[in-house]
Deep mutational scan, measured.
Amino acid sequence: MALNTPQITPTKKITVRAIGEELPRGDYQRCPQCDMLFSLPEINSHQSAYCPRCQAKIRDGRDWSLTRLAAMAFTMLLLMPFAWGEPLLHIWLLGIRIDANVMQGIWQMTKQGDAITGSMVFFCVIGAPLILVTSIAYLWFGNRLGMNLRPVLLMLERLKEWVMLDIYLVGIGVASIKVQDYAHIQAGVGLFSFVALVILTTVTLSHLNVEELWERFYPQRPATRRDEKLRVCLGCHFTGYPDQRGRCPRCHIPLRLRRRHSLQKCWAALLASIVLLLPANLLPISIIYLNGGRQEDTILSGIMSLASSNIAVAGIVFIASILVPFTKVIVMFTLLLSIHFKCQQGLRTRILLLRMVTWIGRWSMLDLFVISLTMSLINRDQILAFTMGPAAFYFGAAVILTILAVEWLDSRLLWDAHESGNARFDD
């Protein structure tokens, strides 16, 4: 018995066209964080690309023209004298008006014999932002004059995390709450300039795509075929072959399989920071003279006294001054041990922890910024005066060393310790 099946006739004509040209192939790229070699397709503007294995951002879609970056830099340069030299806060102490600005706080630190601690604050609040705007201006002028731009481009990517104007702005709020127990506070004209400078700096850093600047100024022929001998440069993120001198053909720094002496430098910085954190938390970090009496505060006791007036601000200072430094030390110690013992479990967790400490590390400088600003506000000789204690130097040095330890660690070593050939990683 035959089955009668109805015929289905399409209502619209289906047209099949042959592909007349070869589909576009992607360029081969190595991930600078996990060293995976993959094919990167062509990316349009405002599109980002991520590593298929570790999800690290390979290409950032946010990109401004150099002219727009230069305009932002010149605007920031105009704001800087007002943000640093004009009063941020006014207080009335014992019937006398006192003005506080950024430069005055750094000068008070240096004047009291601790120039190293003052230079830490100076670099993060004044030096690094000033280098940022002058570097962008150098790129703008240098591109037109045919100057060598490689050193500036190499420095810009590392400079971003040292620009800490946003953290200093939080420190202004913390210092205001600490001082309000002794005097009446009012915002100064410099505060508005400083807030504007923070906003412009944040926007500029978020749109400063150094890798795209490398592509514009020093374009290189990408690798179009897969080759395990391809290496990625950690300076400019170019994937290719080393030249005859073993250097990256684009930025001219040595092109090595792994960062040289990464573990040794990381261990040295980490152990030194552990040693410095002990006096930083045991010795007094601030000293207040009130009517001839002397009151010393460690980091913890200062947080407890701050909690009596504002528990939320005390929580912020606790996280930045105690929780973050010790968390960074514990995480980095764990990561280094996992590399030495070739741990194969929990790779995803370790990668996330490394990215976390990379982002939060700079916030530990908050305590030094609060001390710097408070020193310029309260300084009335023996009637009422505020000065920093010996722990300030140890704390600042420990924070900087932990930042350097994270920067010096080559994250690809975590993958080397893991089993080879993993296309995915999980716990």
Rank of each mutant, 00 (worst) to 15 (best):
L149D: 01
R17Y: 07
T9C: 06
V370N: 00
T358E: 12
R150S: 04
I299H: 00
V399L: 07
K265Q: 10
L79V: 04
I136S: 05
F318Y: 10
E419Y: 15
R221Q: 13
I136V: 09
I167W: 03
N148D: 04
L159R: 01
Y168I: 04
T15R: 09
L373W: 02
A423R: 09
A100L: 02
R412S: 02
S45W: 03
A183C: 05
V275I: 14
E161L: 12
F238W: 13
V125S: 14
R150Y: 05
A223Q: 14
D243F: 07
L234D: 14
L94G: 01
S286E: 00
G173V: 12
V152W: 02
R144F: 08
I303S: 13
T110K: 15
M1Y: 00
I360G: 10
T402D: 07
A417L: 10
V174P: 01
M76W: 05
L255Q: 13
R30H: 05
L404V: 12
Y241I: 12
L205H: 13
F341L: 12
A269C: 04
I172A: 06
F341A: 11
R53P: 00
Q7W: 05
G235D: 07
D410T: 00
A70F: 12
E157I: 15
L88S: 04
C124K: 04
G396D: 02
D35A: 04
G20F: 05
A314P: 15
T387G: 03
L93A: 01
R97D: 02
A314L: 10
V275A: 11
L278A: 14
V232A: 14
R97T: 15
P242S: 13
N310R: 15
N101H: 05
T11A: 07
Q47G: 04
F341I: 14
L276G: 11
L165M: 14
A398L: 04
W64V: 12
F141E: 01
T349K: 14
R62S: 09
C233I: 00
A183R: 00
L271R: 00
L384S: 02
W64N: 06
L257G: 10
I253A: 08
I383T: 02
L278D: 04
N143W: 14
S273N: 12
L323M: 13
N44I: 06
L276Y: 06
A18H: 08
V121I: 11
D426P: 02
L205I: 10
G246A: 12
L368P: 05
R17W: 06
G105I: 01
H237I: 13
K160E: 10
V313L: 15
S193C: 04
G315Q: 14
V357C: 06
T75K: 04
I403C: 10
I351M: 13
T134I: 12
L156Q: 14
R412D: 00
K265N: 09
L401Q: 09
F217V: 11
V133F: 04
I8K: 10
Y28C: 07
R380W: 03
C248I: 00
L159E: 04
K328F: 00
W92N: 02
W107Y: 10
R260H: 10
Y182Q: 04
S308I: 15
Q220F: 12
C124N: 10
M332C: 09
I274V: 08
F326Y: 04
D227F: 11
I43P: 03
E407Y: 08
D243L: 07
L335P: 04
I131P: 01
T75D: 13
K160N: 09
Y218V: 06
A385W: 01
L23Y: 10
A196V: 15
L335D: 04
R247C: 12
E419N: 13
L191D: 04
H184G: 08
E228F: 15
A269T: 08
L282P: 02
H90E: 02
P222V: 15
L200C: 15
P151T: 04
P390V: 08
Q345S: 12
T202A: 10
T110H: 05
S176A: 09
G346R: 14
N379V: 03
N143G: 15
A187Q: 08
L37G: 07
D181P: 00
A73D: 06
D166W: 15
L78A: 06
S338D: 07
I351S: 12
R362P: 05
W84V: 07
W267R: 09
P219W: 13
I136M: 11
S364H: 02
P10W: 07
V232H: 14
P10F: 06
H340N: 09
F194S: 12
I91A: 01
L366F: 01
M388V: 09
T204Q: 10
L366G: 15
P284M: 08
S45C: 08
Q47Y: 04
R412I: 00
N291Q: 10
G302E: 00
W92H: 02
R226G: 15
W84A: 07
P52R: 11
T224N: 13
L323K: 13
L366T: 08
D381L: 01
L40K: 09
S420L: 12
D114V: 05
S193H: 02
T298C: 15
I167R: 03
C233Y: 01
Q104D: 10
W214T: 15
S193V: 05
W92V: 03
E161R: 04
C34V: 00
R260Q: 07
M304Q: 15
A392C: 05
T402L: 00
D416F: 11
H237C: 12
D416R: 10
A100V: 09
I285P: 01
V331R: 01
G171R: 00
G85P: 03
D166Y: 15
A187I: 09
L234E: 15
A73W: 13
R250A: 15
C51L: 00
V152M: 01
D114A: 10
T402Y: 03
S420I: 11
V170R: 01
L347V: 12
C31Q: 00
T224P: 14
I303E: 01
M72A: 04
C248T: 00
H340W: 11
L413N: 11
D381Y: 09
M375D: 00
W107M: 13
G173T: 06
L213Y: 06
Q55H: 07
W363A: 03
L306S: 00
A137S: 06
C34P: 00
R62N: 06
I339K: 09
L77V: 10
L205V: 09
G315I: 14
Q108P: 13
F369C: 05
I303F: 11
R259M: 14
M147P: 02
A175T: 14
T67K: 10
E21S: 09
A56S: 09
I303C: 15
P219N: 14
T374K: 00
M147D: 01
M120T: 04
E215L: 12
I288L: 04
I339F: 10
I91G: 01
H237G: 11
I285T: 03
R59A: 09
L277W: 02
S135L: 02
M109Y: 02
P87V: 03
N143V: 15
N4C: 06
C251G: 00
G20Y: 05
L409Q: 06
I8L: 07
L270N: 09
Y241T: 02
E211T: 08
S308C: 08
N143S: 15
T11V: 04
R97S: 13
E211V: 09
L3A: 07
I351Q: 09
L3V: 05
Y289N: 02
S286D: 00
V170L: 07
N4W: 04
R226C: 13
Y182C: 06
I14A: 09
P6L: 04
D27K: 11
A196Y: 15
I378M: 03
L205P: 07
L159T: 05
F122I: 09
A314R: 03
G361Q: 00
I43K: 11
V170K: 02
H207E: 10
L278T: 11
L323H: 04
L234V: 11
Q112W: 05
L132N: 06
F386W: 01
T67I: 13
T15F: 06
T117R: 02
S193K: 05
H418I: 10
L132Q: 04
A71Q: 03
I311W: 15
K57Y: 05
E22S: 08
P390W: 06
H46F: 08
Q295H: 15
A391S: 11
S321C: 13
I98K: 03
F393C: 12
I131A: 06
K111P: 04
P52L: 06
G188R: 11
M375C: 03
H418N: 07
T334H: 14
D114H: 11
V198R: 05
V163F: 07
